[in-house]
Design a protein around this nucleic acid. Structure first.
Length: 955
RNA sequence: GGGCGCGUAGCUCAGCGGGAGAGCACCUCGUUGACAUCGAGGGGGUCACAGGUUCGAUCCCUGUCGCGCCCACCA
């Protein structure tokens, strides 16, 4: 028995358990061994994460695909898991320590701290997994993975070691984006350019050998800068080689103000004559461009800041080298000062001595750390890099060749754009939480990279014994005792960028580097579903790693969805306070309603604007479905074992079967094309506007009438239809559909494992496999199946007959409303001059039409009675004799309006048909259509004129 | 500076070469035997603007204006 009221919360809790108990979502189910696999790897949420609307959308879409393919008989693996999220997690735990006034990370030491993080992970990590379950995500939860699992860590080490051996991972000393708050290097992608209102300062750099005089422009050269404090590290001034203003100065020197360093003026194309003064100061250790300029001209790299971006000059050999007496004083004064405080002081000094020419306001982009929010400092350090440029080549080729396709296709351009300009990927992070880099150093700094400590240490000791740095005996002792080798062989302290392990996700989760059966069966995956914000972070890097290690792209399709925004279109953010919590929405309206709202909004080229009200609308839809099923139940509409919908005799039943086949086809094609919104909207309309509004309403007289064959058939058809709807809707609204499936009949199995279309159930397993074979670009081959279905169900005569009923009822309702006829007033209907076809139809629909159009009776006549309202339905006249009730003038006005419309139609068509070029150039069928339109309009006009004539007579 | 996307009914969006669509909101009517979380009906749009291609343009091309986003080391 279906409960009277739809209560999503009850249902959803229950259904989750049932699915879990039946292991419905397990990959490799015995009944699917011969089926073709379908794999999706979840974008692993951070262990620190909790479900937000972006997750809700992302996972709803994945779930739709997985449930759809599962119902089509495929062996689905939706691989779940979480990401260790290096920086984010470390920050969470550090904050917790601070809140509890416990010793900080550094006081604890690395080992203790990591223990603490693992403890945190065990206690509160991964709450998001349960939240995903509440959303209805049909992952194979038994296969949940974590990027720092033993197995996945093994994959990380293996990849690092192999890429290092191949020269694709290397260590380099160059400028990195340094986060002075988190005290770690970060990658280009973790830097956000933020527009900042600042200043452009024009500085006078005195020429060497000439006495500086602020009044004499020939005694100095002007450089402009937004970061005056970096002048401490200047080691040159660059001018453009073709800039005639400065050619005579190239090769000469300037004396760096305040500092006193003598630095050269060089000619370099980097310098832009249009910008600033046309001469630019060169600070190789604090600016990416200057770094390159400095390299080209052999200028020294003078780093003047420490890790926390404080001035560091005292004892700084690079800085002090070649400085005159007295330089020490400035160094001491500035030492330890924050970079911005130092800027102020330096500017004041420059001004005091006449070195500051002028100051201009200047708005420019300043790099910020996306986690810390502080200004990033280009900083000279040793870091590990991936040769992304080399690895990007196969990754681009795979997309170019179509081995991997982006949907929508435009994103490929974005992908190429980035890949073509890719920079070395800095993968080392000065953090503790993460995969520690498998590199060990000897006393001379030589690097030993290996998969295990034993191996690396063995190699190192062997090397140093051979070099006679240590004796063989010492080597043996150190090999056996970690304490003995401490200080001699040390491990790299750094960990890898979180995205390094994420990049391996499509194969590391399957057990790689072991050649597991899962790797064989489920790699490459079919589709990756994600937002555009992590195309670079994640998608591109999975492509690189997948192609390199698996020799195949990790997925054949990348579906990129849009963002979820609030109802006004603003990005949801905590600070704006416009965040809609998916779990709250689920509490209020149910997961199904939320999912359907998201799916209906998931258009290709628009972000989704979500409001609670929108979810409510979709909850109402669920209620509608619920009540439709209750109606079926109340009328004893039950699944009938031998029932074959293709053999239905009743026109109405043939019609709904026809409509269902059409809807099934449309929904299937839409999901295949990742047009989730089209799919969901098609079902919405089919269920509400076709099944409920017309089919059930038209079936009522039969269902409430006497027992007999029509009633038996209709009951079976109502139930069959209900089941088809539950199937179509299941990928979108899994909970309510599974509940209704369970409650409405004794079933052999769960809906979630039921065959997608009726015919699929009739196919042999071999046929099913054949049809779900993956083709190029993951194109499935269901058109075979659909053509089959459609042909079998197509019934144009049923369509025409029910169409006529629908039009007739609609026309009568419309005119009754217009004429303000009370619903209680039953009016007679006279069909005038009807065709034999109509005459034959009427008895079949007599009850229905009377009921739905509020009629007293239906009769035939040669012509419409005088003073009747005359309607045109499919070219024939339906008259409502309402003499006395209707306002003749109003009726005349109504007919005049229709006449005008018919005449306008004729006129427009005539304009076309009389155009020789149109007749000559337009396709034949279009011309033919236009002619038919004209005829129809002419006929309509004739009928309306007759009607007007009769009206006149009545008056 | 480069790139992408979007401007269609009050709102959110479909449609993307041959007569302007949906949902929500709005107005009118309705306690009809699944459903008021509902039913019936209705109003409302020079499809941003200007050119071009075409027999024909909301749809294709070019430009303009407006909005949003991404990338970029420019002093």
């Amino acid at each position: 028995m279906i409960e009277k009221n739809y209560q999503p919360a009850d249902i959803e809790g229950r259904m989750s358990l049932i699915w879990e108990d039946s292991r419905a979502f397990s990959a490799g189910r015995p009944d699917r061994r011969d089926a073709s696999p379908f794999t999706i790897v979840i974008p692993p949420p951070n262990v620190t994460g909790s479900l937000h609307m972006g997750h809700a959308l992302n996972n709803t879409l994945q779930d739709i695909l997985c449930r759809f393919e599962r119902m089509r008989g495929r062996d689905v693996l939706w691989q779940p898991g979480t990401d260790h999220a290096g920086i984010a997690t470390q920050m969470v735990v550090e904050r917790q320590l601070l809140e509890r006034q416990q010793p900080g990370r550094r006081e604890m030491g690395r080992e203790k701290f990591l223990e603490r993080v693992w403890q945190w992970k065990a206690e509160s990590g991964g709450v998001i997994i349960n939240q995903l379950k509440r959303l209805g995500a049909s992952c194979d939860w038994s296969r949940e993975r974590f990027t720092m699992d033993e197995g996945l860590s093994r994959a990380v080490v293996k990849v690092f070691v192999e890429l290092h051996r191949e020269g694709l991972i290397y260590k380099d000393k160059r400028l990195v984006n340094w986060d002075p708050k988190l005290l770690t290097a970060i990658s280009d992608l973790e830097v956000q350019q933020v527009e900042v209102k600042g200043h452009l300062w024009y500085l006078r750099y005195p020429l060497a050998g000439i006495t500086f005089n602020p009044e004499d422009p020939l005694s100095y050269i002007v450089v402009a800068t937004t970061r005056p404090e970096t002048m401490l590290g200047d080691s040159g001034v660059a001018v453009h080689p073709d800039d005639e203003r400065y050619t005579h100065l190239v090769g000469k020197h300037v004396i760096l103000p305040l500092v006193g360093r003598r630095i050269p003026i060089v000619a370099d194309e980097y310098s832009d004559p249009e910008k600033g003064s046309g001469a630019v100061k060169v600070t190789p250790a604090h600016d990416f461009n200057d770094f390159e300029v400095g390299r080209r001209h052999g200028l020294p790299q003078i780093s003047v800041l420490d890790q926390e971006a404080r001035i560091n000059l005292v004892g700084n050999e690079d800085y002090l080298r070649g400085l005159p007496e007295g330089a020490q004083q400035l160094a001491e004064e500035l030492q330890g000062m924050d970079r911005f405080a130092a800027r102020k002081l330096i500017l004041a000094r420059l001004e005091d001595f006449g070195f500051l020419e002028r100051t201009e306001p200047n708005t420019h982009m300043v790099p910020h750390g996306d986690r810390s929010g502080v200004i990033i400092e280009p900083y000279l350090t040793d870091q590990w890099y991936v040769d992304a440029k080399t690895m990007a080549q196969p990754a681009m080729a795979a997309v170019r060749s179509g081995a991997t396709t982006f949907v929508p296709k435009n994103w490929e351009r974005t992908y190429f754009e980035w890949m073509e300009n890719i920079q070395p990927w800095c993968i080392s992070r000065q953090l503790w939480w993460g995969h520690q880099i498998p590199a060990w150093y000897g006393p001379d700094g030589k690097v030993f990279v290996a998969e295990t400590e034993e191996e690396a240490v063995g190699n190192a000791l062997g090397y140093y014994v051979e070099q006679e740095v240590i004796t063989a005996e010492q080597g043996r002792e150190m090999a056996l005792d970690r304490n003995k080798r401490a200080g001699f062989i040390t491990r790299d302290e750094d960990v890898l960028d979180t995205w390094f392990s994420s990049a391996l996700w499509p194969f590391s989760t399957l057990g790689w580097p072991d050649q597991t059966p899962e790797v064989k069966r489920y790699y490459p995956t079919n589709v990756l579903v994600t937002g555009w914000d992590i195309i670079f972070f994640w998608v591109a890097r999975m492509m690189m790693m997948g192609l390199h290690f698996m020799k195949e792209a990790p997925f054949s399709t990348v579906y990129i969805h849009r963002l979820v925004r609030d109802e006004k279109g603003a990005k949801m953010s905590k600070s704006k306070g416009n965040v809609i919590d998916p779990l709250g929405v689920i509490d209020d309206y149910g997961a199904d309603a939320l999912r359907f709202a998201l799916a209906r909004g998931a258009a290709h080229s628009h972000d989704i604007k979500l409001s609670p009200q929108l979810v409510e609308t979709n909850r109402n839809f669920a209620t509608k479905l619920w009540n439709a099923c209750r109606f079926a139940e109340m009328n004893d509409c039950a699944v009938s074992p031998g029932f074959d919908p293709t053999k239905a005799k009743n026109t109405l039943n043939r019609w709904i079967a026809h409509e269902t086949a059409r809807a099934t086809r449309e929904v299937t094609e839409a999901i295949e094309a990742y047009r989730f919104n089209d799919a969901a909207n098609t079902i919405y309309r089919f269920v509400w506007n076709v099944y409920c509004d017309w089919y059930l309403e038209l079936a009522k007289p039969v269902l409430m009438g006497e027992e007999g064959e029509p009633k038996t058939e209709t009951r079976a058809m109502v139930a069959w239809e209900r089941d088809e709807i539950l199937k179509l809707l299941h990928p979108f609204m899994p909970f309510i559909t599974e509940e209704l499936w369970t409650v409405t009949a004794k079933r052999d199995g769960l809906l979630t494992l039921a065959p997608w279309s009726r015919k699929a159930s009739d196919l042999t397993p071999e046929q099913l496999v054949l049809m779900s074979t993956v083709g190029p670009n993951d194109a499935l081959i269901p058109p075979v199946l659909l053509a089959f279905d459609a042909a079998e169900f197509t019934d144009t005569s049923a369509e025409a007959e029910i169409g006529w009923v629908v039009d007739l009822v609609t026309a009568i309702r419309s005119v009754r409303a217009e004429m303000n006829i009370a619903p209680a007033t039953l009016t007679p209907l006279v069909l005038a001059g009807t065709s034999a076809e109509t005459r034959e139809r009427v008895p079949r629909w007599n009850d229905v039409i009377k009921r739905m159009a509020r009629l007293a009776d239906i009769s035939f006549a040669d012509r419409a009675p005088e003073g009747a309202v005359q309607l045109l339905v499919r070219g024939e006249v339906a008259a409502l004799p309402l003499k006395g009730v209707i306002d003749l003038a109003a009726e005349k006005a109504r007919l005049d309006k229709e006449l005008a419309k018919a005449e306008a139609d004729i006129k427009r068509v005539d304009a076309k048909l009389s155009n020789e070029k149109f007749v000559a150039n337009a396709p034949e069928e279009i011309v033919e259509e236009e002619k038919e339109k004209r005829e129809a309009a002419e006929a309509r006009k004739a009928r309306i004129l007759e009607a007007l004539e009769r009206l006149k007579n009545a008056a």
